[in-house]
Design a protein around this nucleic acid. Sequence first.
DNA 1: ACATAATGGTTTCAATTCGCAACTGATTGG
DNA 2: CCAATCAGTTGCGAATTGAAACCATTATGT
Lengths: 146, 146
Amino acid sequence: MERDWTDPECPVARALDLVGDRWSLLVVRDAMDGARSFTEFQRRTGVARNILTDRLRRLTAAGLLAQRTAPSGRRQEYVLTDAGRDLFPVILTLRQWGERHAFAPGESHSTLVDQHGVPVPELTPTGADGARLDTATTRVRKVGTD
Amino acid sequence: MERDWTDPECPVARALDLVGDRWSLLVVRDAMDGARSFTEFQRRTGVARNILTDRLRRLTAAGLLAQRTAPSGRRQEYVLTDAGRDLFPVILTLRQWGERHAFAPGESHSTLVDQHGVPVPELTPTGADGARLDTATTRVRKVGTD
DNA sequence: ACATAATGGTTTCAATTCGCAACTGATTGG
DNA sequence: CCAATCAGTTGCGAATTGAAACCATTATGT
């Protein structure tokens, strides 16, 4: 029952082993936007049903989704766990990157807004001192390397 | 030559169509950490070489990597474009999610640090008013829906 | 200079995964 | 009761993956 990680000590790689595929992340996206049922996920993502079955199972096994009885009686539903909801920053940065780089100028797309309908501001990495961080100003410290 | 998007008006889906697979994102991760050559990418990620060939081509076609002549003479190298470097927040949030949820308590992993060796702080989504945002306080506004 | 190793792929082939459609069996809804 | 919807499962051909072998160029060591 031991998982065989692609790169066991890299958190990026581990995260990708759990959710690093298109359908998994689209399911998470839709779960964040209120989808709960098999059919709803299927309609929103357009994924093949057998693949959806597989992804829901995986996400549940990974602890990102939980299956519980729907409030309205006897059917089951899938809801995000805390760990699943915690992917919010990942989905958000993907969305913002997509807005910046995956649309032609002037091409329209959906937007994430807060309760008042105000667009969510860009999420920018900053250091402890408030300075903006990027690939040039950071590096990976490997385990056991001080 | 038209791309056939999974969900054309969703920036998340478009982003995933471009980089939503394990190897692409691991290549980007390593490019951010200084990898430039085919062999270097292969060694760091452990991906099969034919797959790496494919991913480097795709990432280049998508405008995330560019192929240019290495400073040291005649060999070619792959470098991140601006769009590629701009994935930094995505990789960072994936990393931070992984650190929080993909390791057992006490299990060690690599860390991202700034120039001075200080760990990079958590990236948290906030609204225009500075309040923390999550799935409960945001929603997707679809195109053409005011 | 010459042998050896490393680089940057391509090719081959088996195994896995994907996507589509049809089918099943429960569960509402009228 | 009948029809529609839900939540999958099954079967199958097509596409993708992964491992290994092969190959033509560069470097490197002596």
